[in-house]
Amino acid sequence: MELFEKLYDEQENVKVRFVGFTTEHTRYDFGIVFTNMFFGKPLVVCMQTGRSTLLDPKDIEDIDHLQSVFRITDRQQAADLAEFFSVTIPSVHSYTQYE
């Protein structure tokens, strides 16, 4: 009996962008993986903490979500981060990932 049922095993060449920046109070270092997986949502990884999430424009507008996923206590810092992501992450075209 097999222990695991494989759901997917995909390979693709992806574009990755590494960006570091500072705001008035905080330094950020992110890796942004642009992939066709996950309905085209980029995978955003905080290089300092290892926390990651998939982000689309609606997620970026949700300041509470950004605070939660990246564990940011200051709302203004999360708003600064949202502003950065809004100009860095393109709009996602919705499509069906699994056919």
Rank of each mutant, 00 (worst) to 15 (best):
N36W: 09
Q97D: 14
S52E: 14
T88F: 08
S52C: 11
Y28Q: 00
F70C: 01
L55I: 04
K41D: 09
E5G: 03
H25L: 07
Q11K: 14
T22A: 02
R51P: 03
A78P: 09
V19M: 06
E83K: 15
Q76M: 09
V33C: 04
T73C: 05
T23E: 00
V69N: 00
Y28I: 00
P42E: 04
V92H: 03
D9L: 12
F4G: 01
L3H: 11
F39T: 10
M47H: 06
E99F: 15
R75L: 08
F84D: 00
P57W: 09
L7N: 10
R75G: 00
K6S: 09
F84L: 00
T26N: 08
K15L: 12
V87C: 02
E2G: 04
S68G: 10
Y8K: 13
N13F: 08
G31I: 06
F84T: 00
P42N: 03
V87P: 01
H25T: 12
R51C: 02
D74T: 05
E61G: 13
L81W: 02
R51M: 05
D9Q: 12
H65V: 04
K41E: 15
D56H: 10
Q77D: 12
I32M: 11
C46G: 02
T26F: 08
E24W: 05
G31K: 14
S94D: 15
G50Q: 06
T22I: 07
D64I: 12
Q11V: 14
Q76C: 02
G40T: 03
T96E: 14
H93M: 12
H65P: 03
A78N: 02
T53S: 07
A82C: 02
S68T: 14
F38H: 14
P42K: 04
D62L: 08
S52L: 12
K58F: 12
K6N: 11
